[in-house]
Design a binder for these strands. Structure first.
Lengths: 188, 188
DNA sequence: CAGATCGATGTCAGCTACTGTCATCACAAT
DNA sequence: ATTGTGATGACAGTAGCTGACATCGATCTG
């Protein structure tokens, strides 16, 4: 048998979400998370840059999915529609983990430091999408604006999705938010 | 004569910007900032919630200006145009402090933690603008979308303004970014 | 005017997030 | 058998941040 139990990183992620959810982010020490995972505080910081990052490991995967979906959108699609289409694909993935998403979102909503980190992740995502659009020939600042608009749509649709009592699907909410944005910005 | 030199808060703000600019944010300790201001570390934390906040004291004033300008926009203006008009007013204010703005922006750009805090300030601002729009009768999610779009325009225009060699004014850059956004989102 | 009160600051002790450094030891490569 | 290698533990240290209490001009109150 091996020297250590496997999946140290996953154990830390689960222990952290449990403790943050049970007693709050600030009331949880890193030493407690590590203890619940059967590890030491030092090992926690080898897997995660800081106490918040343990909740955002999935952000990278989400970003990869969005970028690759956007990169393979049809050439003919307008930038904003291609971006929205990528978010629809992401929504389909999240739709299967609605409970986990809600729990994680409640934890983040309860603490300002975690919201801060989430904003960073969304900004990073926006930059990645803008870069992908540029590779598709979209000029600046149109690329950044379309990416930011997509993230905005996603944020709003996500908030509705986790709070709503399951009437509309995540994908529907994204499509509706996109239509709203187009209506709002349809100026002379 | 009074017991202490006046404007402790201002002295701390100036000392912090100097030190962050000279040797970097992480390489500066709060004790050093306080010493340069002729105060103690404990007093620093009585004036500012944390080490980053000392750079964001002006964010509140900017937000007040934006909100009051937006609140007094003509009833007839479309939400997105009213928001953009408020940012133009803010731009006129910042136009007078271009050097300070550039120095502060360079400091923030050099450190991820400071960028994180700036994102929070912009998100707070967006929420305040959305609330103001709602009071003007704009429904959700149009209010949030218009506010987010305004912040996006501002971010892009600000980036161009501080990096450009003074060809276009800040106000012009905002107007041009607004036109770009309208073009990007002009869907079917 | 004497005394009480207040407000901004100082002092000090303490917690915890985070880091650097070195030791440990199962496992793999050779 | 020897020699890495890689994940972890152990331990000391820095610095951000907080709570509790003391200090002492300025100001109010009677």
């Amino acid at each position: 048998m091996s020297r250590w139990e496997p999946d140290a990183r996953g154990r830390l992620e689960r222990a952290a979400l449990e403790l943050y959810s049970e007693r709050g982010f600030e009331q949880t020490t890193v030493a407690e998370i590590a203890a619940r995972a059967g590890l030491t505080e030092r090992t926690f910081f080898r897997h995660f840059a800081d106490k918040r990052e343990v909740l955002f490991g999935g952000a990278g995967q989400l970003q990869d999915l969005l970028v690759s979906t956007l990169a393979s959108a049809p050439e003919s699609a307008a930038p904003i529609d291609a971006v929205a289409g990528a978010f629809e694909a992401a929504a389909r993935m999240l739709e299967e983990r609605r409970e986990y998403s809600g729990m994680r979102q409640a934890t983040i909503a309860a603490n300002a430091d975690l919201q801060e980190r989430e904003l960073v992740k969304l900004a990073t995502l926006s930059a990645a999408l803008a870069g992908t659009l540029r590779q598709r020939g979209v000029a600046e600042p149109a690329a950044s604006l379309a990416a930011e608009a997509g993230v905005t749509i996603f944020k709003i649709a996500f908030g509705l999705w986790v709070s709503e009592t399951n009437q509309r699907t995540f994908v529907q909410l994204i499509q509706e938010s996109l239509d709203e944005l187009k209506a709002v910005t349809a100026g002379k």
